[in-house]
């Protein structure tokens, strides 16, 4: 794969500006369709201190140009993650962003402390999952709560720290500013938008969790707008995501001021989508006018 469009995100070299969105990449399963080392980075599924069983099924519902999910961060716990997926990914030469989930400040701090002692390249704090009752989005929708959590995590790790923001707020720039002030090295956005579907034949919600997170192309304009707002209001790099299906979609985020992008839902529809998007984006950036436009967007937002 073409390495001519490397980016540096908080001191970490990415071979291209594309990563996976947390929760849409699984080592064994996605690894059948592409080599994780071909991406700028892979972002792994949210990991907590203890194993979480996640939500009851159905966890997935299709929506117009999108989908709702309420998986609820099912994961095997940080110890199993470190011994399993993280080791495999590092052995394969991938740049790894470990996504961290928690029910409490103490849990986030514990998981980050454990991961600080590993060779994960970066940490991403999931303070924006709409599908867990305690923790998740509760930490990402109040500026003071978010700042306190980011500060506590910052104190236990020197790893580059990305804070993933929720779009389910009135003014995302306030949360972005709080995270930056508390020590975030980068921001990623957006997580899913809280949504719901009802089966008109039964009158009941389709998801067992009643509500879920909306993702896919349906949310892309919202994501581009929020990336645009945040990139102008902070000085740390922004990883943009939300419904990116093609290289051109990814370019839209870079032109909005993002330094890199993440591919999520597209990978659930086309398993090889992340590397395809990276390839398509590379072809677009090889046009000097496009490259100049991206540089101009970064200067404007810096």
């Amino acid at each position: 794969m073409d390495d001519s469009y490397r980016v540096n995100i908080c001191g970490v070299e990415w071979r291209n500006p594309v990563t996976t969105a947390a929760g849409t990449f699984a080592v064994a399963e996605s690894g059948k369709y592409f080599d994780p080392a071909e991406l700028g980075a892979v972002t792994t599924k949210g990991v907590s201190a203890e194993p979480w069983a996640g939500n009851p099924t159905p966890r997935i519902a299709e929506t117009p140009s999108g989908m709702l999910n309420a998986v609820g961060l099912e994961n095997p716990g940080v110890d199993a993650y470190i011994a399993g997926d993280l080791r495999v990914l590092k052995d394969r030469g991938a740049t790894v962003i470990s996504n961290v989930a928690g029910h409490s400040e103490d849990e986030y701090v514990y998981v980050c402390r454990r991961l600080d002692a590993t060779d994960t390249d970066m940490l991403e704090l999931n303070v924006s999952c709409p599908n867990v009752r305690e923790g998740g989005m509760a930490f990402g929708t109040d500026a003071d709560t978010l700042a306190r959590l980011v500060g506590k995590v910052r104190a236990v790790t020197d790893k580059p720290l990305i804070v993933k923001l929720s779009p389910n707020v009135t003014d995302i720039t306030k949360l972005a500013a709080a995270a930056e002030r508390a020590g975030a090295d980068a921001l990623s956005l957006i997580n899913t938008l809280l949504g719901m579907r009802i089966d008109t034949r039964t009158g009941k919600p389709i998801l067992a969790n009643i509500t879920g997170g909306l993702s896919g192309p349906a949310i892309r304009p919202v994501a581009v707008r929020m990336v645009y707002e945040v990139a102008r209001s902070v000085s740390v790099p922004v990883v943009g995501m939300g419904g990116i299906m093609t290289g051109e979609d990814a370019l839209e985020f870079l032109l909005a001021g993002a330094s890199a992008v993440a591919v999520g839902t597209a990978a659930l529809i086309d398993p090889a989508a992340p590397v395809r998007v990276a390839r398509e984006l590379g072809e677009l950036i090889s046009n000097p006018q496009v490259a100049a436009a991206i540089d101009a967007a970064r200067v404007r937002t810096a």
Partner: peptide
Amino acid sequence: ARMGCGYGACVGCTI
């Protein structure tokens, strides 16, 4: 099962 991705990435169809 109501599946999402149908290849094991989304963890939508657990039993």
